[in-house]
Simulated assay, not measured.
Amino acid sequence: MATTASTRRQFLTLLGLSAAAVSCGTATGASSRKGQTKTLRYQGWAGQVTLPELAEDLGYLGDVKLEWVGNTISGPQDIQSAATGQVDFGGAFNGAVVKLAANGAPVKAVISYYGSDKYAHNGFYVLKDSPIRSAMDLIGKKVGMNTLGAHSEAMLDIYLRRAGLSRADIGKVEPLVVPPVNTEQTLRRKQIDVAVLGGILRDKALAAGGIRPLFTDYQLLGAFSAGTYVMTDRFLKQNPGTARAFVTGVGKAIEWARSTPHDEVVARMTDIVKKRGRNEDTGPLRYWRSFGVAETAGRITDKELQLWIDWLAERGDIKKGQVTLSDLYTNQFNDAGNADAAAPSAASSSPTSGS
């Protein structure tokens, strides 16, 4: 397994995309087709239903269709794929979005898609009998998370710094990449000391017992939108109607999930997973509670990105003034922010209806 330092360098290299690479990649993508594309290529998450998938099933994307090209467990990888034209949109932690833009990738955040609230948050969990009780106890310990350089590592860094650990001691805490579906098991086998768990996987693990939280991102920062979907500037310029349909549809899906009874949302998601036929376990879906998006219909605010601009600059990952906040995001394609995002019509509201 690579060391933490070498793995982090690999991540920074991953986001160090040259303008030429991004330009070439995008030129071969859907945005170069004649006319506005009506098909959006994307990566999913195994056993989960993303907001675009929910929006499509609810009929909120209109004549825009999604084309699944595979799964990912990494937000930074997902937005890199969007920047190079391998997919048409990708989503990641806002700090990773800032980092990508700082490295010259012509991408723009268009809508928030996940966040932290009292129901939807990531926690750093240890076994119930673990001696780890404080930030100081993490020195020399292994922390399993889905990817490096993203949400979980940022939260870990903030937690350790607030506890007063020196940069040298923080460097002795070892973040490791563990696939989300394996994280709970890896913790219980004591192959890692701390497991970052969120959403349905967190609640499933808690229901099984034997673990306790060290801290959560909700405790650290309160309720906030944490990640955004991005599209390239070229895609937005060449496909404004498609981008509007996508962003508005996802915004409506956010509000549908927020206002619809829990059991109905879970039933809808379960049906979506069953219909796509990828041999996925639908059991954990019953633990879903919220997408955690703070603002109405996923509209992006300055503070959600400024927080990470400041954090990255303080760490020395980007230079002060290297990123202009107004260039990072736009809400211009989100008509759902001021529109009625009510439940779909009776013809499309049945959990067994097609997309």
Rank of each mutant, 00 (worst) to 15 (best):
2 A>V: 13
3 T>E: 10
6 S>L: 14
8 R>M: 13
9 R>L: 14
17 L>W: 02
19 A>T: 08
22 V>R: 05
22 V>T: 13
22 V>E: 15
26 T>V: 12
27 A>F: 07
28 T>F: 06
36 Q>M: 05
38 K>Y: 05
43 Q>C: 09
51 L>D: 15
52 P>Q: 13
53 E>R: 02
54 L>T: 06
59 G>S: 10
65 K>Y: 01
65 K>M: 11
72 T>E: 08
73 I>T: 14
75 G>T: 00
83 A>S: 11
86 Q>P: 03
86 Q>L: 07
87 V>S: 11
89 F>P: 04
91 G>E: 08
96 A>I: 03
100 L>M: 13
101 A>W: 03
101 A>N: 06
102 A>G: 09
103 N>F: 03
104 G>Q: 01
106 P>D: 00
112 S>H: 01
112 S>N: 11
123 G>R: 04
124 F>D: 11
125 Y>W: 10
126 V>R: 01
127 L>P: 04
132 I>R: 13
133 R>V: 08
135 A>M: 09
138 L>S: 03
139 I>M: 08
140 G>K: 09
145 M>W: 01
146 N>G: 15
147 T>Y: 00
150 A>W: 05
152 S>E: 15
153 E>F: 00
156 L>D: 02
161 R>S: 12
167 R>V: 14
171 G>M: 15
171 G>C: 13
173 V>H: 09
179 P>K: 10
181 V>L: 13
183 T>R: 05
183 T>L: 09
187 L>N: 01
189 R>E: 15
191 Q>D: 11
192 I>D: 04
194 V>R: 04
195 A>I: 09
199 G>P: 00
201 L>K: 05
203 D>G: 07
213 P>N: 08
214 L>W: 11
216 T>R: 13
224 F>N: 13
226 A>P: 05
227 G>P: 06
227 G>E: 15
235 F>Q: 06
239 N>P: 04
240 P>T: 05
240 P>D: 02
244 R>L: 02
246 F>D: 00
254 I>V: 14
254 I>M: 12
255 E>L: 06
260 T>N: 15
261 P>W: 01
261 P>N: 10
262 H>G: 15
263 D>N: 12
263 D>M: 06
266 V>M: 08
274 K>V: 14
277 G>D: 15
279 N>A: 15
284 P>D: 11
287 Y>Q: 11
288 W>Y: 14
289 R>L: 11
290 S>Q: 05
290 S>C: 11
297 A>G: 02
298 G>M: 00
302 D>V: 01
304 E>T: 01
313 A>P: 02
315 R>P: 12
320 K>F: 03
323 V>R: 00
326 S>E: 10
331 N>A: 09
332 Q>T: 09
333 F>A: 00
334 N>I: 00
335 D>T: 04
336 A>H: 06
341 A>T: 12
345 S>R: 04
347 A>G: 10
347 A>D: 12
350 S>W: 06
352 T>C: 09
